[in-house]
Design a protein around this nucleic acid. Sequence first.
DNA 1: TTGTATGCGTTATCAA
DNA 2: TTGATAACGCATACAA
Lengths: 346, 346
Amino acid sequence: VSRVTIADVASAAGVSKTAVSFAFNNPDRLGQATLERVLGVAQDLGYAPHPAARALSTKRSGTIGLLVPQRLATVFGNPFLSELIQGLGEQCDEHDLTLLLVPPLDGSLEHAIRMVSVDGFISLGLSPDDSAVRVVERLGIPNVLVDSEGSADHPAVNIDDEGGAEAAARHLLDLGHRRIAILVLPPVRAQKDPSPSVTRRLAGYRKAIDAAGAPEAATVIAGISVAAGGRAFESLPRGRRGPTGVLAMSDMAAIGVLGAAQSARLRVPEDLSVVGFDDIPASAWTSPPLTTVRQPIVEKGTLAARILIQLMSGKSVASPRPLSTTLVVRKSTSSVTGPDLHIRRR
Amino acid sequence: VSRVTIADVASAAGVSKTAVSFAFNNPDRLGQATLERVLGVAQDLGYAPHPAARALSTKRSGTIGLLVPQRLATVFGNPFLSELIQGLGEQCDEHDLTLLLVPPLDGSLEHAIRMVSVDGFISLGLSPDDSAVRVVERLGIPNVLVDSEGSADHPAVNIDDEGGAEAAARHLLDLGHRRIAILVLPPVRAQKDPSPSVTRRLAGYRKAIDAAGAPEAATVIAGISVAAGGRAFESLPRGRRGPTGVLAMSDMAAIGVLGAAQSARLRVPEDLSVVGFDDIPASAWTSPPLTTVRQPIVEKGTLAARILIQLMSGKSVASPRPLSTTLVVRKSTSSVTGPDLHIRRR
DNA sequence: TTGTATGCGTTATCAA
DNA sequence: TTGATAACGCATACAA
């Protein structure tokens, strides 16, 4: 069942291959009559240009790659990615591009990069000196870093991690919390340092804590999942020495803390205040609704895609300023000296 | 900055292109010494085989396409897709494949299909006689239908939509509900009939309702989003003629109903019972937690990918039996004659 | 307006 | 164990 090629159409229509090619890519250069005939024959034969052959010839594939440092089963556990893709998709739509998901292949992100045919990459959470980014550079493929650091070579789209984290911590401190635990995101790549945005968020939390003269916060690593949040909560000390407030670097982990705390008969926010990060849609529906740091994820995706598309067209683009974050106060945080506290402790 | 090709490596290493190709694809056929030398030179030069050229030659691209009938910004609003991709990803991982998202390009799904270079498709919610499926057939690309209908030409992976829907409706009927509203999913493609799974779910709901001798349910179309669910609720009659129970075909819409009902000062479940469909993770965290029909989404993805991979290797595969669905009873449903009702109406 | 000829970078067939 | 060489299917500079 060999596929029908341009040559088949050409001979069937009694023209050259060039004419057929023009019919698809340069219709103006063909006579009205021949154009219609060629198109008709192509239609009848069910001809479509072979994408790989076209890509080889034009040096463009019409797809952009989304470089994710972990397995799909892992990264898609986080609604964050869905939202980012909504943003990317908006631009893909507009520019007739498709989106290729590129997780590590065979455990190697570098290998995956070499295998795929894309016109550009958007890389998630990879620092500019990551070896995967190096490979992309070396291949000369345009690249936009998301949730990374500024770099001379690549535009980076970031949010104000530090400001958001600082606002979150200050919120808790203003409510009187002093014993605070921080749920830190794990490194995205095995054996690597924490990703850049984690470092910035940590700095933001600490800045507020230091400014308030509060004791240093305990930190515990929690993956981006409800289960991981729950486990992180379990590992925290309870009672007089336990935290009264938790700062989580992801809403998913925060939601896990919510559930685990309530299972442990703690009331949120009366006994434990919880602040998330991201403001994924679900954080508005939890009970209690989650206080969190909102970042404009969809917009981040759109912006990254827009920059990449510029890059692909040969323009050089500077990194935009970080997108702003805002604290969204809902019901999962309250004053540490709330009235309920007395009742319960009685 | 022209990319380094196999010829560059060949001449630099003083061997033929064939030898270089062998070094990557058929190392056994090369002498130890030459193999190492070629690989070393390739490394130094930063050589990687051009994916499009390789695809053209081997007739394999190493990627599978996920055919979605709507824009990415739309479909990724539904957590369902995230979960499905987790399932697909598990197999992609195992078989060194990447996943290409293929939404309509320029408004045309058929056009998108012709543009992309994939070894197979997984198509979502498309009936076997959809013109997009026809195009895939015509190109001779392996295809697995998900949430569709059985077909002679394509294996289809489905769930027991009818059974799940029936269980949901019966649950409400058993609780004494008689005035029931159904939130129907809109057609996935403009100007088309409802997708196959919608038809089956509707049949399931109605089967239970008929069996109980209850009056026919009102139906209202609601997209798969919280906002759409809210709007659907608004459009429902209120009070003595309004429904006491809502059957939604998606959890997202159900969550929207939850929120809108509570905003309208109805208590869930005392004043209004709500049943969703899918059992997305978030449905366990809402307040109240959502009663819903669970379908094994991740497993569905894994199964679909597994079948597609078989298909791509030339085997022919029959459609598996529909995956079973189960009713998950949480807190969003209760008896229509609950005690609270009297208190409130007093 | 249409056709000829060549390049795109690999893999694979066949010989050596 | 290695090397010429022919596909693979299309786009395009150039010629007619």
